[in-house]
Design a protein around this nucleic acid. Structure first.
Lengths: 364, 364
DNA sequence: TTGTATGCGTTATCAG
DNA sequence: CTGATAACGCATACAA
């Protein structure tokens, strides 16, 4: 047993060397390693990061000891000190929607590759919660934020705290109308156009459209615009009674709207739904009423959710590159974190969609 | 313009009062508030927390100014200082599985009620990732951890860092065999028994069982044990050729296993699948082979996933109180964080399951 | 009721 | 190549 001197903060303590014990109910710090190796904390810190000014030998020794002692860096301290956390905050309506879980998956893949941690928060489509979680992300000093807006959100001023502080902010899919920041979206207009055109190509002439959302979110409006343009381009009338607005994007709302359509005379011979759950509700309502899909009514959905392959008949749909969008969003953040100043012109990334033809719309 | 003295750390700075500007590209701290109000930082800190030693008037003034200046507490600093972060780490295989997204939902509800933040990490059923993310959670100094093990995980020593440091750890659903900590589970044995008995009650006498998982995870084994016990109790033989082991819980694996069963002569007249995706694959495989469900073969799944209501015929299943389990898990953590020392006897919380009879098994 | 001083664990800067 | 020291923002023991 011998004595050694350990420097810690601005005073010295004399202490005896003890064997490190696994029982120790305490976090191991770089002080502990420094003490053990008779080195300065700064040396430890640098060695652990493979700093070039530290000798190979020391690096090896420090790493070995750190491992032995069960050292795990305190990201709070590092974050506080360096004012950066290598954390990406993700603020989305819910994780239960297949599109959004795929989005997360993509974000995580890109984040992990660059050593970033992802923290996910759900707004449950409530503006109030969204405001709180945005504050919480800010409070946690995330390096960047990826967000898909809550359905009810109109005022987006709670995102100013990020842009005002140079924290990269990327909106995905449900993006605000007028916020000068990055956005990753699909071309909803052309997707709506493609879906409608596909039904027209199948011989449908009386095509209904279920739509949703407030005037604020332009996502559904864009799909609707694609729908009406496609009709016009093919000399089909735009019949207001064939356009039904849903209050929410749920199965129940879809059933209600479908019944409304099937009560018409004549019924529509094609339905373009802006989501697979809605499309599924339309298919099942049709079947329940003795209508044949696609013979009596062809149906196409949106998103390519897992259920689209389960339902009988299999659902035609529009593929949405969710995972790619997630990757793209994360990469924008990481890239902009590296370059000191952010791009003045905020880029908009458009990703491709495709018509995926399955049984529910294959009439020929 | 007049001068004031601001105390900061152990030196004093003379500064002029300037109007707070929204353009300021900087985080607002309690120092800034202190400076503005000519108060000590400690007073600000306490006022923001409604400390009883601070006067009503000061509290009001401080809060108002904080609001005006756009102050958001730095959780990193608070966490570092207080050695607690009010954060619950959730480590699960994936967020895309309906059971797990419901679990998250429950965790979030309970966490939010007590002012906790939830951080979610996905192991993607890989042990290696699980080890890394566990370290990352530890590194982030989470207050507690909720985990559902990756399918491949056998060695659970990476969770010792939590239990050794008095960080409450709750395993949910996929729990390890021999780790002395909290666990929230359903009674898989009795659920398996109930499911099998239900098929027997429908008149099935040749009941097959699809099972999965390694010997390590006892979840599927327990369901299987319930299955065999139910058969025995009703004087039905346990036929090894009717028990098929899946490599993974995927649709494809389910199709393969189902085909194996339908190649038998005679085919089974009932199938108990340990998950709805597997059950769906069995139903669809049966239909594809011209078999009628439930007349030729009755099927019951597990979990009550959304697809169980989409497929035709609707799937009978076992309800799994996922959200409740999440809430329970989060509450255990919060409770144990409050009481200084953790319960010596780690509690096991069992939650109820029920047979949900739908078309796929209703023969009478 | 408010103020002073210091540490939490890390890293960057400067000095050997 | 290594060491000493300050600072990040907050909370708390102690002082007044």
């Amino acid at each position: 047993m011998f004595l050694k001197i350990v420097y810690r903060r601005n005073y010295y303590i004399y202490t005896t060397i003890i064997t490190y014990s696994m029982e120790e109910n305490k976090y191991v710090t770089i002080y502990d390693i420094a003490e053990r190796l008779n080195l300065a904390t700064s040396t430890i810190s640098r060695a652990l990061k493979d700093h070039h000014t530290i000798s190979e030998k020391t690096i090896k020794k420090v790493k070995k000891t750190a491992e032995e002692m069960g050292f795990v860096p305190n990201t709070l301290a590092a974050g506080l000190r360096g004012n950066k956390t290598k954390t990406i905050g993700v603020l989305i309506p819910t994780v239960t929607q297949p599109f959004l879980s795929s989005l997360i998956s993509g974000i995580e893949i890109a984040a992990q590759k660059s050593g970033y941690t992802v923290i996910i928060m759900q707004s449950h489509d409530s503006s109030e919660e969204e405001v709180n979680m945005a504050k919480s992300l800010y409070s946690n000093r995330v390096s960047g934020v990826i967000c898909s807006l809550a359905m009810e959100t109109r005022d987006t001023s709670h995102f100013l705290q990020f842009s005002n502080n140079n924290i990269p902010l990327v909106f995905v899919d449900r993006v605000p109308k007028d916020f000068n920041t990055f956005r990753v979206v699909i071309d909803n207009y052309s997707a709506g156009y493609k879906a409608t055109k596909h039904l027209i190509d199948q011989g449908c002439t009386r095509i209904a459209h279920l739509t949703a959302g407030s005037e604020f979110g332009n996502l559904y409006n864009e799909r609707k615009r694609g729908y009406t343009e496609a009709l016009r381009d093919h000399n089909l009338p735009v019949d207001e009674e064939l356009i039904v607005n849903l209050k929410s994007v749920t199965y129940e709302a879809g059933v209600k709207a479908s019944n409304k359509l099937f009560d018409l005379n004549p019924i529509p011979d094609g339905i373009f739904a802006p989501g697979d759950i809605i499309a599924v509700s339309a298919v099942q309502t049709a079947k329940k009423r003795g209508l044949k899909v696609p013979e009596d009514v062809a149906v196409i959905g949106f998103n390519n959710d897992p259920i689209s392959e389960i339902i009988d008949p299999n659902l035609s749909t529009i593929t949405h590159p969710a995972e790619k969008m997630g990757k793209a969003a994360a990469e924008i953040i990481i890239k902009n974190l590296k370059s000191a100043k952010q791009d003045e012109v905020k880029e908009i990334t458009f990703l491709n969609t495709e018509v995926l033809v399955r049984e529910s719309s294959a009439r020929k």
